[in-house]
Each structure stands twice: as structure tokens, then as C-alpha cells.
Amino acid sequence: MTAAVTSVPVSAPQPAPTRVRVTQARVIRSEWIKFRTLRSSWITLGAGVAGMVGIGLLISWATNNRWTHMDPIERLTFDPVNRSLTGAFLAQLAIGVLGVLTVTGEYGTGMIRSTLGAVPKRLPVLWAKLGVYAVVTFGAALVAAFASFLGGQALLGTHGVSLSAPDALRCVIGVALYLTVVGIFAAGLGFAIRNTAGGIATLFGLLLVLPGLARALPSSWQQWIVPYLPSEAGGNVFAVLRDPSTLAAWTGFAVFCLWAAAAVALGAWVLSHRDA
């Protein structure tokens, strides 16, 4: 490493760039640079897409192969659209982890102090992070959703449907929206908890563990609790055939959005009130 000790250690005075100031658009740009300059962003996102498409194709192929061995009830409740999108349950792991990490990675490394030193009003950082991550996630999830659906339906053979089938397009776009909200939920929890392990545990505790726990409750209680849990409510948006006890597609999705909004609100409160 060489240092320019001999020269005067400061650049020649430049005309002051008067337009140098913080704007929300610039903070978004900064967050976009942050996202794309970490290799782990792309690896995790790629793993999520590959996992979703891979599982969707595998399960569709297996279903078609096993069709003659399936019992009548299984055939009656078979939802070809939802079946090809099953990989979303895997993709949400990658998207959830990455969502938590985009925030807690900054707390873990100390980067957050540079970030908040540059944007001391703080909340613009939260909006920019959520915005960038939501757009990136939606794009990746939409690609994965179409690939899963089209590939899956092809592998389902005669049991598959086309995109013009009732509710098919709603499910394909719905699963991308579901995964996007998982990402927002995760980033909100990241701001609230500030710790990678804690954030990931909380996220998947709410998404994956809570429904299992709730099903251990007396069944008279379950109907008031289970349908409103985040993944139970949100999952309706990419299912055609639903259990009558569950919420309608968009109602369920709205409930899921409320969960994510609560996490973001908590994160925003913590970010603006606690020392960095």
C-alpha cells in the first residue's frame, strides 16, 4: 500500500457542487448499489428462483407419473395451478433470509453507522431498502412463477391447465406478490430486531412454526386463529381450490400484508428511536 505522503494530501479545491444533497431518489440509488454489489444477494436470489422452479417441475412430473395410483379424493382436491407453484415454500426461505440479511448485515458489520451517518434522517433508508428489495424480489419471483407454472403444466401433461384457465394468472402473479411481501416482512423484522439469527428465527417462527402450533389448539379456537396467521392467509393468493375455512384469495393476501406492515412499522419505530 502506498500513500501519497509527498503530495499535499487534499485535492485541489473544486467548485462546490451545489446540487450535492440527500434525496429519497438518491438513497434508493444507493441502496440499489448496495444490493447489487454483494455477491451473496445474487447467489441467494438465484438459489430461491432455481429452488422454486426445480421443486415445481419435480412435483408436477411426479404427480403426473403417479396419477393412476392416486385415490379419488386426492384427484378431486387436486389443484394443478397450486401444485406447480409448490416451490414457493422453498423460495420463501431464500427470500426471507436475504430480506433479513439486507438489514442485519449492516448492523453486524457496522455498515449501518456509515449509512445513517450519510442519511441521518434514517427513515429514507428504510423506505429505500424496502423499495429496492421489493422490486428485485418481485421481478425474480415473477420469473420463477411463470417458469414453474408453464414448465409444471407441461409436465402435468393431460392434467395440466393453461394460463387462461380460471384463476391461473391470478395465482401466478399472486405467488410473486406473496414472495415479495415475505421479503418486505423479513426486512421489516430485520430493522426491528437488528440481529441476523434473531430476525431469521422470528420470521420463520411466524411463517412456518406458528401454523403448526395453532393446529394444536382446540378446533373451536382454530377457526378464529389459523386462517389469520401470515402464511396461511397469504398462501390463499396462489391457490385455486381452497378449504372453505380459509380466507378468500385477496382477503387473505390483505391480512398477510397487514402482518408485513406491522413488522415494517415496528422496524421504522426502532430505527428512528433507538441509537444506531
Binding site: P17, R19, V20, R21, V22, T23, R26, V27, R29, S30, I33, K34, T37, M111, S114, T115, A118, V119
Partner: peptide
């Protein structure tokens, strides 16, 4: 890239 991230918040070239 670290410096670019910080520069971007202020529109610093």
C-alpha cells in the same frame, strides 16, 4: 463500492 454507496446518497460523482 463502499464509497460509491455513500456518494450516491448525496449525488456525489
Amino acid at each position: 463500492n463502499h464509497l460509491r454507496v455513500l456518494a450516491a446518497t448525496h449525488g456525489i460523482p
